[in-house]
């Protein structure tokens, strides 16, 4: 059974850390380079991110992700190098194309921030089960219904994809053309819609009934199967993250 998550199971401290702490880290690690647009600070954020990923033993996954984004980053360099409004100093001339220094530097800053965002997001995404993030949020007071919708979508969508495959197979065996050029393939999806939509409406109602008889609408206080890890450590880490943010803001104001 496929689940749409990039989570890499592990037993490191980063895996066990409160998901909301990781979410806070993500927000701050993205914000700092914008508040303090100094390449050295972005670099520091980047290195901290790499260090945490190494600690969580998931660095190899990020390298793969970064490799995938190279194409995108090259586009930034080409476009900014050629067309950045502040371009004045030609740096590199390739035939008819002139790349300017200002644009390339700007592209570097943007790319660096982008990579930093990817690294920081990876800390959260690669080491946290989505369901744990959601249940931490429910503990802190988001509505259990919203929590349910978020976590079930992650599981039920792949399930619908499986259903679609099954219906498609059945239709193929009855002679429906599902291969070939784009037009025939698109056409093949139309007969799929009926059973899929009707099927999921029926399933939705049945699932709603099944949830209902498992006290989904209970109004009392809920409890949680998973124990939350040590509060004090989390609080200390949260405090450090927030302190870093405040220091950056102060630095920005006085420099």
């Amino acid at each position: 059974m496929k689940v749409y998550t990039l989570y890499v199971p592990g037993k490191t401290y980063i895996h066990k850390m409160n998901p909301l702490t990781k979410l806070l880290y993500l927000a701050v690690a993205i914000a700092i380079p914008f508040i303090a647009p100094d390449p050295a600070i972005t670099m520091a954020c980047f290195l901290i991110g790499i260090f945490i990923l190494g600690w969580a033993k998931v660095l190899h996954r990020v390298i793969y992700l970064l490799a995938m984004s190279i194409l995108f980053i090259s586009t930034i360099f080409i476009i900014q190098g050629l067309y950045y409004p502040g371009n004045t100093t030609p740096y590199l001339i390739l035939g008819k194309l002139t790349f300017y220094k200002e644009g390339l530097i700007h592209a570097m800053v943007i790319s660096f921030r982008l990579v930093n965002i990817m690294i920081s997001a990876s800390v959260l995404v690669l080491t946290t089960r989505p369901s744990d993030l959601i249940s931490s949020a429910v503990r802190r007071g988001i509505s259990p219904r919203l929590g349910y919708v978020m976590s079930s979508v992650l599981q039920i969508i792949p399930q619908m994809a499986t259903t679609a495959d099954t219906i498609m197979d059945a239709q193929k065996s009855r002679g429906l053309e599902t291969e070939g050029n784009l037009k025939t393939r698109l056409k093949a999806y139309i007969p799929l819609l009926g059973p899929l939509v009707l099927g999921s409406l029926v399933s939705a109602q049945e699932r709603a009934m099944a949830l209902e008889v498992r006290a989904f609408n209970a109004t009392g206080k809920r409890t949680f199967l998973q124990n939350e890890e040590d509060y004090t450590v989390s609080k200390a880490i949260n405090a450090i993250i927030i302190l870093a943010l405040i220091l950056t803001i102060i630095w920005r104001i006085y420099s």
């Binding site: 689940v3 089960r129 369901s131 259990p144 929590g147 349910y148 976590s151 079930s152 599981q155 039920i156 399930q159 399933s203 049945e206 699932r207 099944a210 949830l211 498992r214 006290a215 989904f216 209970a218 009392g220 206080k221 809920r222 409890t223 949680f224 199967l225 124990n227």
Partner: peptide, 26 residues
Amino acid sequence: FNQISGAKLTVYEEVSFGLENIGLPR
């Protein structure tokens, strides 16, 4: 199939769904 909550990743946790809702101690 339609009785699985879809909110839990394991069989063990699936059983906890109703129990969490009624607020049973861990």
